[in-house]
């Protein structure tokens, strides 16, 4: 458990047509390029670059980001739910890391 792990949170239940908040936290350093203070060597950046939000496998939003987002990023996005289903986030970083998380929501 380290980089890329996280929490995806949606309400357990919602009314049809309700706009909910999809909240997430992902563990990631989000470090900018920098010089190592002891060796003086260039350390490349390590950041999440892209996050996709899907609902029942239909694309909802794509977030592009870089080192301007804080370490262990928190994000919240709106989602209008018309049916029960699975909220999914798929995200990747600039070192080839790829992760996915899902959460279920019951809509009535």
């Amino acid at each position: 458990m380290a980089i890329g792990a996280g929490i995806l949170r949606v309400p357990k239940e919602a009314k049809k047509g309700e706009i909910i908040r999809v909240q997430m936290v992902i563990t990631h350093p989000m470090s900018p390029p920098r010089k190592d203070p002891t060796t003086g060597q260039e350390v490349p950046p390590h950041t999440l670059t892209k996050l996709e939000l899907l609902f029942n496998n239909k694309p909802v939003s794509t977030v592009n980001m870089g080192a301007g987002i804080s370490a262990n990023p928190f994000m919240a996005i709106a989602l209008k739910v018309e049916e029960s289903g699975v909220v999914k986030i798929a995200y990747e970083d600039n070192k080839g890391g790829k992760w996915e998380r899902t959460a279920e929501i019951k809509v009535s």
């Binding site: 989000m30 239909k58 928190f74 919240a76 996005i77 709106a78 989602l79 209008k80």
Partner: peptide
């Protein structure tokens, strides 16, 4: 349109 609304919250440097 699936977002339903313009809403985005995060923490920045």
């Amino acid at each position: 349109p699936m977002n339903g609304q313009v809403y985005f919250s995060t923490r920045i440097k």
